[in-house]
């Protein structure tokens, strides 16, 4: 019960930071979204020890573990685009499938190869 209450409080904190981000984006005409500004604000507050990790950790963990739930309404929105899907659905799917696989392969391999190269370099220096 206490844990449940703490989660709700912490989620509210995180929400307030997102709202603050939204306000800043509007005022300063920033090109990014409010939640990303909110993320950087929380990161800065954690870094400068203004905010304790324990003050947001539980809420953040809850939101991240249930994140798929928050995507579901936008996935249901697809039914509004029946005509486009009937007409071009298979083309969309081919592009998204192939492009997503390509992106993941390239990103994964570039990262993996550079990490190993770095490890080898360090290993050589060690010898």
């Amino acid at each position: 019960m206490l844990k449940c209450f703490r989660i709700i409080t912490q989620v509210t904190y995180l929400y307030l930071f997102a709202l603050l981000g939204n306000v800043l984006v509007k005022w300063l005409h920033l090109p990014v979204s409010g939640s990303i500004i909110g993320l950087f604000i929380v990161l800065a507050l954690l870094h400068f020890k203004v905010l304790k990790l324990s003050a947001v950790e539980l809420g953040a963990g809850f939101l991240m573990s249930e994140m798929l739930l928050f995507f579901i309404p936008s996935a249901v929105a697809i039914i509004q685009y029946k005509n486009e899907i009937l007409q071009h659905g298979s083309q969309f799917l081919i592009v998204i499938l192939l492009s997503t696989i390509t992106v993941m392969i390239v990103t994964g391999l570039v990262a993996q190869i550079s990490i190993r190269r770095l490890a080898n370099k360090k290993g050589e220096i060690g010898k």
Partner: peptide, 20 residues
């Protein structure tokens, strides 16, 4: 549904925790 979608915002802010 919008209420649930909106929770994506604090979830993104919450990514500050693993990053930190």
């Amino acid at each position: 549904g919008r209420w649930l979608s909106n929770l994506l915002q604090p979830a993104v802010v919450g990514f500050a925790v693993p990053l930190y």
